[in-house]
Amino acid sequence: MASPAAALLAVSLLVLWASPAQGGANDAEDCCLSVALTRIPGNIVRDFRYLHIQDGCRVPAVLFTTKRGRKLCAPPDQPWVNRIIHRLLRKSAKSKGHSS
């Protein structure tokens, strides 16, 4: 099992800088330059957004926002990415169902 320092280092290395979209709409959207090859721990993620090629991005990705506000780029076709997204959607649906 990896030490906490090694896990923190791995997550830190996964933080990939976003850049404005090349071409596309006037309102430049952040795009990922590459995606994480290592699994991102789902418990650090608070939000997500899809970044599509048709929106002007060169790399299709899921942009996760961590609880600390960092942006992590993940490949949209990976099962672990879909599990995190489904968990976030379930959590969002539950919170909307309880707020009245």
Rank of each mutant, 00 (worst) to 15 (best):
G97T: 15
V35S: 01
S19D: 06
S34L: 09
L88W: 03
L9G: 11
T65M: 05
T65L: 07
T38D: 08
V35I: 03
R49E: 11
V15S: 05
F64E: 08
G24I: 00
L9V: 05
R58E: 09
S12P: 06
E29P: 05
A36V: 07
N43M: 06
I84P: 05
A18H: 15
P75A: 09
H52E: 10
S99I: 15
G97R: 14
A21K: 03
G56V: 08
I84F: 03
V62Q: 00
V62H: 05
L16A: 11
W80H: 09
A6W: 03
A21T: 01
Q54K: 00
N82I: 06
A5D: 14
V62N: 01
R49S: 06
Q54Y: 10
K96Y: 13
W17V: 15
G69A: 02
R39Q: 00
F48W: 14
L13F: 12
L13G: 12
S92K: 15
L89S: 09
Q22V: 14
R68P: 08
H86G: 02
P41Q: 07
G42P: 03
A74W: 08
V62A: 01
R70V: 01
S3L: 11
Y50R: 10
V62R: 05
L16H: 15
A6C: 06
G97K: 14
C73R: 01
H52P: 02
D30I: 11
I84K: 08
Q78K: 09
D47R: 09
D77I: 13
G23P: 03
C73K: 03
S92Y: 13
W80F: 06
R46K: 10
S100H: 15
T65I: 11
V35P: 05
P4L: 12
N43L: 13
S100L: 15
A61T: 04
L13N: 13
L33F: 05
G69D: 04
L88D: 02
I53Y: 01
D30K: 12
S99K: 14
K96A: 13
V81C: 03
W80G: 09
L13A: 11
P76I: 05
K94C: 12
V15M: 03
Q78E: 14
S3Q: 12
K94F: 11
F64Q: 01
P60Y: 04
S99C: 09
L8T: 14
M1V: 14
S19N: 12
R83N: 10
C57G: 01
K91S: 13
L14T: 10
K67I: 10
F64R: 02
L13E: 09
P20F: 00
V59W: 09
S99T: 13
A2M: 12
C32S: 01
V15C: 06
I84N: 06
P20H: 04
E29G: 02
P20C: 03
L9A: 10
P79K: 04
R39S: 02
N26W: 00
M1F: 13
S12G: 10
C32E: 04
D27G: 05
A74D: 12
K67H: 03
N43Y: 11
G56I: 10
L8I: 15
L88I: 03
S100D: 08
D30W: 10
W80D: 10
S34E: 15
G56E: 07
A61C: 07
A25P: 01
H98T: 12
A36Y: 01
M1T: 14
V11W: 02
D77W: 08
P41D: 04
A25L: 07
F48S: 04
